[in-house]
Structures are given as C-alpha cells and as structure tokens.
Design a protein around this nucleic acid. Structure first.
Length: 421
DNA sequence: TCTGGGGTCCTAGGACCC
DNA sequence: TCTGGGGTCCTAGGACCC
C-alpha cells in the first residue's frame, strides 16, 4: 500500500492586483482590476471588485460606465513587473519544500507528504511570503492535487480560515465537496459542467460519488481521473519543471485593424523575434512553423500557412525569412486584419540536429546563431529593444494599447520609484 | 465484390487551465 | 471604435499497411 500523499497548493491572491498594490498602497481596500493586453478584458480582480460583480474576462468596453459610476480602478497589465515579483515569491516557495512544481505565474505545488506538521508549515510559509514580498497567498492542502485545489478555493471565500485550509480526513473532504459546485472542480469547464448537470451531477460530492468507469465511457479518461482524485486517489503527480515546451506561440490582437502587407510583416517579425528567443533559451530547434492571420469582423476568420523545415531551425534570421514567405502566402489585399501570430512546433533539442555536411555551411550557421544571440541579449529587459531585425522597424501600427499602464518599477532603471525623506 | 481485422501515424478540433 | 495570450492533453477520423 502506498503511503498517502499530501499536496500543497500555494496560490497568490488576485496576483496582478496585489503586485500593483505593492507600489501604490492607495489602491488598498479599493475595487481594482487589471486588464489584459490591449486593455481588452478583465484578467485580475481585487476582492472589492469581485464583490461588485465584475466577472472574470469581462470585456472592458462593455463595463466602462459601470466602472465610472462605481469608482472602479482599471489598470493595464505590466507583465514585466508581475514576472519579477513572481520569481521572488517562487524562490521562497522553493526553499520551503523538497519538491516544488511552479505551475503558473501565481501558483505552485509543494510536496508535504513527509512533513510531520503540514498545517503549521503552511502557516509559516504564508507568513514568510507576506513579510518578504508583500504578496498575500492562500494555501490548500489535500491528498490529491484536485482536493488541494478544492481546499484553496474554500479558503479563499472563508475569512476565518485565514488563508490556510487542510483537508486531512474523509469527513472534512466530504463536507468540503458538498459545498463546491461541480463547475468549480479543477478540470471541469462550463461545457462539461452543463453536461454533468443534465446527469444530475451538481456538486463536487455528486461527482465524487459518480461511477468512474461510467464517467470514462460517457466523457473521457481525464474526467475519470478527476473522479478518482476527488476520492483521494492521486492521478496527477508532480511534474518536473524542466520539461521543455512542445510548442511556442507568439501572437497578438492589433491595436487597430491593419490592411497592408508591410504592416503585417512588421508584426510578424516581432513575433518571430520573441518566439526565436524563447526557442534558444530552452536550447531547442523548431521542426515546423505556422503563420496565421485573423481577418474580418469579430471574431473573424483565421487563415494559416505551415512549413515543415527539412532540418530543424533555431536562428531568427531563417525563421524570419520563412515567416515572410508564409505570410505572403496567406495575405490577400482588401481585408481587415485584426490579429496575427507565429507558432513554432515539432520542437527538439538542438543537439539532435544532424551535423552540417559542409564546413562552410557550419560556419554560416554559427554566424546566424551568434547574430540571433545578439538580438536576444539586446532585447533582454527592454520593452523596446535597441537592436532589431530590419522588418520590425517598418511599422508600429500593430502595437497594442496600454493606456493605463503603471511603470516597470522593478525592471527598468528609469522607472524605479523615488522616495522622498 | 458490399466488404475483415488489426495496427500505426498524422491531423484537426474540442476542452480545459492560468 | 472596443472581445487576451500562451499552453496541454485527449479523441475521432482518415490514410496507409499487412
């Protein structure tokens, strides 16, 4: 019999809003939201904003009047800042447990299986993160990942738990699941929830009590695993963070609709530059590349073109060259373009590549690699790289709006806050 | 001819997550 | 005027093979 596992989930409270509050304490206690790229929709809400009924993902333009009449504060997102604060939080988490999986910018799993006092450990860690970074977190603990999620979900809406919830026995688990809507179970989206409700499965407890094999037949193995997890049998284990990505996507909705090929080329060059940088940071080369554009009125149509390389490619210059041809093949004049992007996939470790046959070719590749590296170095930490691939300079029209952005307090010298004594 | 069974590989699309 | 971006996993169906 395997030893019962114990998973802890560390989850930052409304993370983006909390980051903004670090540098602007006047936002404390007020309803605040952070908007997605392009100031399109709401992606993070303070407690006060949630209480006013703003849903996650609400399109900002539809709520503008509501914001004004309720004195709601909306901020553009500042991902450089959030990434920086995140790594400070994660450093503390990583020092706290033998096994840690950073799951997203604001969440991490920790292995508490061998801890003699998980609850006290969690309290301690929460206090430490708060003192050292100023970020409030909630910690849920349970015998499976799915149950740890449930624990944290409940902690977030129950003030007297003070940010830590440990589901340590069967009775507590059953009680907790009876208060959770099936839609709030990890892995159940609104589509599955609707189908489950037709089967009279409304709460987390109903799903736990459903027959896993029946669920598998009606839905999928994934959902079956969720049922087992709710019963305390772990199916989703820790995953190594070193796992390289399987695809790299860089895309954006434009600040305004575009028509010209050269404007699209400028945007595409930027996406390639970004995707290429990420490719090399992971030591990967791409086997295939897709360029896509969205056109027509919302939500519009997507047209794409894909190229499979004869040999995996890692340098930005080649990617850029192929990207241009791909874009040309999908471009038609007199269309309104609203979004585009570049997708790199069939990723493989660089070492796997066949050695070039001619030394000449090797030399050339070496040069391209150095040049790409140079581009990466120059781009680091700058929102506007000083050195860029020529095409990027063509047009800035695709760039998005960020009218409410706060400064990059921690990552750009010019924007570090000054303190007056 | 109205039609087998078993396998693999690939792709597109659905669903979910943060 | 205005609706994010970056991912993963699974499944069904088609092509192809013996």
């Amino acid at each position: 019999m395997n030893k019962q596992k114990r998973f802890g989930l560390i989850d930052c409270d409304n993370f983006y809003v909390s980051c903004e509050r670090l540098f602007n304490p006047s936002l404390e206690g007020k309803p605040v939201v952070v908007l997605s790229n392009n100031d399109g929709c709401v992606v993070s809400r303070s407690k006060e904003a949630k209480a006013l009924g703003i849903p996650m993902g609400a399109p900002f333009f539809q709520w503008k009047e509501f914001f004004q009449s309720h004195k709601l504060i909306a901020l553009s997102s500042n991902y450089t800042l959030y990434g920086d604060i995140s790594s400070r939080v994660m450093e503390l988490v990583e020092a706290s447990a033998p096994l840690v999986e950073v799951y997203s910018i604001d969440e991490a799993w920790v292995d508490l299986t061998d801890s003699p006092s998980p609850y006290e450990d969690a309290r301690e860690l929460r206090k430490k993160i708060w003192r050292w970074t100023g970020i409030p977190v909630t910690i849920g603990i349970g015998p499976t990942k799915t149950l740890a999620k449930v624990a944290s979900k409940i902690a977030k809406k129950t003030d007297n738990l003070r940010g830590v919830n440990f589901l340590s026995n069967e009775d507590q688990i059953i009680a907790a699941l009876s208060t959770i809507d099936v839609e709030d179970v990890w892995g159940i989206g609104h589509r599955l929830a609707a189908k489950l409700k037709e089967l009279k499965i409304h709460s987390g407890l109903d799903l736990r009590n459903a027959d896993p094999f029946h669920i598998r037949k009606l839905f999928s193995v994934m959902l079956e695993r969720t049922v087992w997890e709710l019963r305390g049998i772990s199916c989703f284990d820790f995953e190594e963070n070193a796992k390289p990505p399987k695809q790299i996507l860089s895309s954006q909705t434009f600040g305004k609709a575009l028509f010209q090929l050269d404007e699209l080329q400028a945007a595409m060059a930027n996406f390639v530059n970004e995707a290429g940088g990420k490719l090399r940071r992971f030591g990967l080369a791409a086997g295939s590349m897709t360029v896509f554009v969205r056109h027509g009125s919302f939500p519009g149509q997507v047209t794409s073109a894909t190229l499979r390389f004869i040999e995996p490619v890692e340098d930005t210059i080649t990617l850029l060259d192929k990207g241009e041809s791909l874009l040309q093949s999908v471009y038609k004049p007199n269309r309104t373009y609203t979004k585009s992007g570049v997708l790199l996939f069939d990723l493989q470790p660089r070492e796997n590549r066949q050695l070039a046959f001619w030394s000449r070719k090797e030399e050339k590749e070496e040069k391209l690699r150095t040049l790409s590296q140079l581009l990466d170095d120059w781009s680091m930490g700058r929102s506007k790289p000083a050195l860029r691939v020529g095409t990027e300079l063509f047009s800035e029209n695709w760039r998005l709006r960020a009218e409410r952005k706060t400064p990059s307090y921690t990552s750009r010298w010019k924007e570090i806050p000054t303190v007056r004594a």
